[in-house]
Write a protein that binds this DNA or RNA. Structure first.
Length: 357
DNA sequence: CACCCGTGGAG
DNA sequence: TCTCCAAGGGT
């Protein structure tokens, strides 16, 4: 039995066609070298870490500010980790910031301030996994390596109409990427695949008519492009609830404390609060208040959705006299200086709810 | 492998 | 309002 594909006749996916498309339609990005220019490994690495599960649009602003503040890997390695966390605040996945700092120090100490060019050495650095190691090797050094991200998974699963769902299909997709990778310009090939996924082979309404790989694409031929990649159903987390206490001192200071270095929002700042649990009990919540004073329960609540669970915080506010000492493990911070704190978005929401920010 | 870890925007 | 998901990594 001859597959219908072969009867119809079709081209095989041609890296050259993709590269030709890339030469005409490549995106101009702050961390991307111009054609013919040599990429800066520090910029490539920094952008790749920031872009992990984060959109290009969001990263742009952070990237420019970060680069201005930490112009070199040495500058980043020599900075206090608190400064790095503060510069990262709002970007999410805060272990990335801690690993970023550790990686910069490792590059300075183990590699004399130069990023290694091979995937294996890159893989050994903090915060660099299979994707980022391949991306840096290919993009910064034009080494024969693939960078399989969500874009590439989508493009290649459609190209082959892969029925195997993610994440099980990852090894097959990686092997396919390696098989397609051209000997020349592997760095551009990696970026071309991602640009194609980001601008043409999009999750919804892919622009197949503009795609250089439209002829060999099995999913397009079958009219099912949008249904790929197949994915295992994911479960949503249960609602958690808790209390947050905004203490405002007469001299316009807010009480803050630091979260433990690891785990949820690790190393970030917060206003004191209760544990987060499935049920909310006002009496139990007030037992967690940082100061023994008259707390006002504010109307409404703050809702925030993390990757794996939604959160609802009841906010309490109290006014304290100046010179009220901070309880053990917490500190007063001037309202005007809150912008310099490593406050995650959920805590900015709490402060806004309490009419602080 | 399963689970943990943020956030903002699009549809 | 709700779902998806964006250049993933660590444990």
């Amino acid at each position: 039995m001859i597959p219908a594909d072969d009867i119809a006749g079709h081209e095989t996916a041609d890296p050259t066609a993709l590269l030709a498309w890339y030469d005409r339609h490549r995106r101009g990005l702050p961390w991307r070298a111009l054609p013919g220019e040599t990429a800066d490994p520090y910029r490539v690495w920094l952008s790749e870490i920031m872009l992990q599960q984060t959109t290009v649009q969001t990263v742009k602003g952070y990237f420019e500010r970060f680069l201005a503040r930490f112009p070199t890997v040495e500058a980043l390695a020599g900075a206090p980790v608190e400064a790095v966390m503060q510069a990262w605040a709002g970007l999410g996945y805060y272990s990335r910031a801690r690993n970023l700092h550790a990686c910069a120090q490792a590059v300075v100490e183990r590699h004399g301030g130069r990023f290694p060019a091979n995937e294996t050495a890159l893989l050994a650095l903090p915060g660099i996994g299979a994707y980022t190691a391949g991306a840096v090797a290919a993009i910064a050094f034009d080494k024969p390596a693939v960078a399989v991200d969500g874009n590439v998974e989508r493009v290649l699963s459609r190209l082959m109409a892969l029925e195997e769902p993610l994440p099980r299909a990852k090894p097959a997709i990686r092997a396919l990427a390696l098989a397609l990778m051209p000997k020349a310009r592997p760095g551009d090939f990696a970026q071309a695949l991602m640009d194609l996924g980001a601008t043409i082979c999009t999750p919804k309404k892919p622009a197949c008519v503009l795609c250089p790989w439209s002829p060999p694409c099995r999913a397009r031929r079958e009219g099912t492009a949008e249904t790929f990649p197949r994915k295992e159903a994911k479960k949503t987390g249960n609602l958690r609830m808790g209390a947050a206490f905004v203490a405002v001192r007469a001299d316009d200071c807010i009480l803050l404390r630091d979260r433990p270095p690891r785990g949820l929002l690790g190393g970030m700042a917060e206003v004191p609060g209760s544990d987060w649990s499935a049920a909310f009990d006002a009496g139990q919540a007030l037992a967690a208040a940082p100061l023994n004073t008259r707390w006002r329960r504010l109307p409404g609540s703050v809702r925030h959705v993390f990757t794996h669970f939604p959160l609802e915080l009841t906010v309490y506010r109290a006014e304290l006299p100046a010179r009220t000492p901070a309880p053990e493990g917490s500190r007063w911070r001037a309202r005007a200086e809150l912008k310099d704190e490593a406050l995650p978005t959920v805590m900015r929401k709490v402060l806004a709810h309490a009419a602080i920010e």
